[in-house]
Amino acid sequence: MLVLKKIRKQFDGKVVLNGIDVEIANGEIVSMLGPSGSGKTTLLNIILGLTSMDSGTIIFNDKDISKLSMKERGFNIVFQDYALFPNLNAYKNIIYGVKNRPDLISKEELDGLIDFLELEPHLSKQISQLSGGQKQRVALARTLATKPKILLLDEPLSALDGVIKETIKDRIKAITREYHLTTIIVTHDPEEALTMSDKVLIIDQGKVSQFGTPNQVIHQPQNNFVEEFILRQLRIKRDNIYNLFEGCHA
Rank of each mutant, 00 (worst) to 15 (best):
K5C: 08
K5T: 14
R8F: 13
K9W: 07
K9D: 06
F11N: 04
D12G: 07
G13E: 10
V16D: 05
V16Q: 09
V16W: 01
I20H: 02
E23H: 03
I24L: 01
G27I: 07
S36W: 04
G37R: 09
S38K: 02
G39Y: 08
G39N: 06
L43G: 02
L44E: 08
I46A: 06
I46K: 08
I46T: 06
L48D: 09
T51P: 00
S52F: 10
S55L: 09
G56V: 06
T57W: 09
I58D: 01
N61C: 01
N61V: 04
D62N: 15
S66E: 04
S66T: 15
K67M: 10
M70R: 13
R73A: 09
F75M: 10
N76M: 13
I77V: 13
V78K: 01
F79P: 03
Q80H: 03
Q80T: 02
D81N: 14
A83N: 09
A83Q: 11
A83F: 10
L84K: 01
L84S: 03
L84C: 09
N87M: 06
L88T: 06
A90S: 13
Y91L: 13
K92D: 13
Y96F: 14
G97D: 00
N100C: 04
P102F: 12
P102E: 12
S106F: 13
S106Q: 06
K107N: 15
L110R: 01
L113A: 03
I114G: 00
F116T: 00
E118Y: 08
H122S: 13
L123D: 02
S124M: 12
Q126T: 03
Q126H: 11
Q129W: 05
G132C: 07
K135D: 05
K135G: 01
Q136H: 05
R137H: 07
R137E: 07
V138I: 15
A139L: 04
L140G: 00
L140P: 02
L140I: 11
A141W: 02
R142C: 06
L144V: 10
A145C: 03
K147H: 07
P148C: 11
P148T: 11
P148H: 08
K149D: 08
L152Q: 04
D161S: 12
G162A: 12
V163G: 00
K165F: 07
K165L: 08
T167H: 12
K169C: 09
R171T: 15
R171E: 15
R171I: 14
I172M: 05
K173F: 11
K173V: 09
K173P: 02
K173H: 06
A174Q: 15
E178D: 02
Y179T: 12
H180D: 12
H180L: 08
I184H: 00
T187Y: 04
T187V: 07
P190H: 00
A193P: 02
T195G: 09
T195S: 14
S197K: 04
D198T: 08
L201K: 00
L201I: 04
I203F: 10
D204P: 00
K207A: 14
K207E: 14
S209L: 05
T213P: 03
N215E: 15
V217I: 15
V217L: 08
P221W: 05
F225C: 06
E227H: 15
E227Y: 12
E228H: 07
E228V: 13
I230K: 03
R232A: 14
R235Q: 14
I241K: 14
L244P: 02
E246T: 12
G247D: 15
